[in-house]
Write a protein that binds this DNA or RNA. Structure first.
Lengths: 291, 291
DNA sequence: ATAAAGCTGAAACAAGTGTTTCAAAATTTG
DNA sequence: CAAATTTTGAAACACTTGTTTCAGCTTTAT
């Protein structure tokens, strides 16, 4: 059962009880952990100046079934994934009885969602989000497009953005065709396009049109080579890994919300003031339930 | 120019000139860089759903002699950039000047979002989600309501749900008033209501109306005592903690997506069949961009 | 010293690796 | 429409992989 003992610690504590050759191997592993993750067992054995069989013996000595298991552990450490994702996935597949199947699925979804979010706030993405903010702040008008499953994320941003800026336009095709809504788009404007595979034709067309009018594009999508990301000023590539048939737009939504938060933070008191005004207006329309 | 050309950039810039299969491979590599460093070429090919030869061909297409060379490049990248999330968090906390203020904010948003998601998949919520699924499966019609900031989450569910069930209705007020859309709601139906503080009057009214018609309610909201959750058959209470002025709907969206995944999983092959049919229909309408 | 216990490394193994080849299929061209 | 060209994936390849086996080599205890 999954007592997630750290194999490195195990290696250290058992070190004294190992045979000389195994100690040699163990020592090399302790000194060169990344070799375990990246090189083959034989290559490691060569580097440690030890026959391959010694490594195998070392494995069983520290209570590890197979080299694969050991390597997986080190690979996950390198990726900074606290729990062995692959291993857990296998575990989940094993217990396939009907009673716990649903719980397993949800647990696995949870892990995936967290992974997706973590990846979305990687240092690289963070700096790209800051770039995106700068572009948004400089834009005359901000168009937001997202169809199908990506619509909610686009919608979320548009809704929040409009509470403190009045230059946001959600291109949703509700009011006639796309062409109408994008009319007049130009180099001083900005298009935020959201979409993952399968790419919806309308979204790609909107991006292409914007580009043809020299309007810069911020792409929130699933790949660097997504058609939406082509020639984009700023590519916000997020994971949409999911257990189900549908892609997950959780990370996309999260990034959208983060952009809003960032814009407000950078906007200072002026932004907050505008939000207050917007809220007041909504209150006038009796939108909210008073407590 | 530098021998140290970034192979990733090369892959992106040459992407358009590659053959379809190579694009498939290139795309997988771009989306899963750590697979290059950690897994074997054949394993990667399998994951990318491409024959091994395609990878070899891709190598020569981008001017790389051998897979080894390519892999080494990615391994070095992985080692150079140990920017583990936790580590980075500690680093950033040290420097507290204005330049890093944005990074800090995003960092903190990330943590909060992960917390929100984790809480949403707690054992208690998991079992409630399973209850919710059972209710949805038994319902004659499934109405989904969510206004304002909660609209995207409602929308997301409605979109996905409609791909495999035809008894879902998104109550969004687009087609006239709420009253119209909820007409005929009754004890055999189900209302899924989404909303957090500040509660929007329309949503609460919809819940009250449903209740008056003896229609059970599933509430996706921020508190057990939220007006939306009153007398609900099933309360899915998620956190919406956020660094910004706006609540975060990430957890709500995630739960919605999880519900969909669960419904599909429980629906078995029949559900998948329906999805296939829906996809086909979308293809007929030329919705998607072909690859 | 000598038998018992273990440790060690060469060799053998089945399975998996990266690469090349080649004929069929798909696409483009004339 | 057919011919020329490109693209594709299965098969074959030589080699490496992780593991097991086994005979020789310590070491140790009597």
């Amino acid at each position: 059962m999954g007592v997630q003992t750290d194999l490195r610690e195990k290696l250290i504590s058992d070190y004294a009880k190992l045979s000389p050759q195994m100690q040699k191997a163990a020592r090399y592993i302790l000194d060169h952990p990344s070799d375990v993750a990246l090189r083959s067992m034989r290559a490691l054995a060569r580097a440690a100046d030890v026959p391959p069989s010694t490594i195998t013996r070392l494995m069983s000595a520290i209570g590890v079934e197979t080299w694969q298991e050991f390597r997986d552990h080190y690979q996950n450490r390198l990726l900074d994934q606290p729990a062995s994702y692959a291993q857990r996935a296998r575990e989940t597949q094993r217990t396939e009885n009907d009673a716990n199947r649903d719980e397993h699925l949800l647990e696995s979804i949870c892990r995936t969602e967290i992974d997706n979010i973590s990846a979305a706030f990687s240092p690289e993405l963070v700096s790209r989000m800051i770039e995106a903010c700068e572009a948004i702040e400089d834009a005359r008008q901000v168009f937001i497009v997202g169809r199908g499953a990506a619509y909610p994320a686009a919608c979320q941003f548009a809704y929040a953005y409009r509470l403190f800026c009045d230059n946001g336009v959600l291109v949703d095709g509700h009011s006639g065709t796309f062409g109408d809504e994008l009319r007049g788009i130009g180099r001083r404007d900005l298009l935020i396009a959201v979409g993952a595979k399968p790419y919806i034709r309308d979204t790609v067309r909107a991006v292409e049109f914007a580009r043809s009018q020299h309007c810069p594009v911020i792409a929130l999508t699933d790949s660097d080579v997504s058609p939406i990301a082509m020639d984009a000023l700023c590519k916000l590539v997020v994971r949409d890994t999911s257990q189900s048939f549908f892609q997950s737009f959780t990370a996309a939504l999260s990034v959208m919300q983060a952009l809003v938060a960032l814009l407000v933070a950078r906007g200072g008191p002026k932004a907050l003031q505008r939000i207050a005004a917007a809220e007041e207006q909504l209150a006038v329309f009796d939108t909210y339930l008073e407590d």
